[in-house]
């Protein structure tokens, strides 16, 4: 069951049980909703943008442990970052969870715990749902993002 522990690392389980920034920030000026019709995961990501910077970020919704922990840790990692920085982190994160590249693992810091996802291809969408939603919120898209 070694692979299972790779996926369900303690940090991931902990974040899924007690997600950080699980709220709508008072100064929210951008938001987007993400939905994975395959498993019913549904998240809203809220942004308080200050020019090009993410001054505050929160999320709410329901989903599996992987998607919830990913959303929680995403909010921590992009808070205070510029849009370009956040998008770069997503790019590196995406390469990590799809197994394309582990070269940015060190840069990703805590987010590297999601590297086990690459062994479970059907779960990649769970790990990236919140990120896709963040991207939509940054772009100011109003329509719902779907993983399908």
């Amino acid at each position: 069951m070694a692979e299972l522990r790779d996926l369900y690392q303690e940090v991931i389980l902990e974040h899924s049980k007690a997600p950080r920034n699980y709220r709508e920030p008072a100064g929210t000026n951008h938001k987007a909703e993400g939905y994975n019709p395959l498993c019913g995961d549904r998240f809203t990501v809220y942004l308080e943008m200050d020019g090009d910077s993410i001054r505050d970020i929160g999320f709410q919704g329901a989903g599996c442990a992987i998607s919830k922990a990913s959303a929680s840790m995403m909010t921590q990692s992009v808070k205070g970052k510029t849009r370009a920085e956040a998008e770069k982190i997503f790019e590196q994160f995406h390469e990590l969870v799809t197994g394309h590249s582990h070269e940015h693992e060190a840069e990703l810091g805590k987010l590297a715990v999601f590297s086990g996802v690459s062994e479970f291809p059907v779960r990649v969408k769970c790990a990236t749902l919140a990120w896709h939603t963040l991207e939509a919120a940054l772009e100011g898209k109003q329509e719902k993002v779907s993983t399908e």
């Binding site: 049980k17 498993c39 995961d41 599996c64 059907v122």
Partner: peptide, 21 residues
């Protein structure tokens, strides 16, 4: 407290095929 998708993955690791969703 456990999402069906997580249950499905853990059961699959034990060779058990169920539907989740």
């Amino acid at each position: 407290e456990v999402h069906p998708h997580d249950i499905g993955t853990i059961l699959d690791q034990q060779g058990i095929a169920v539907r989740t969703g």
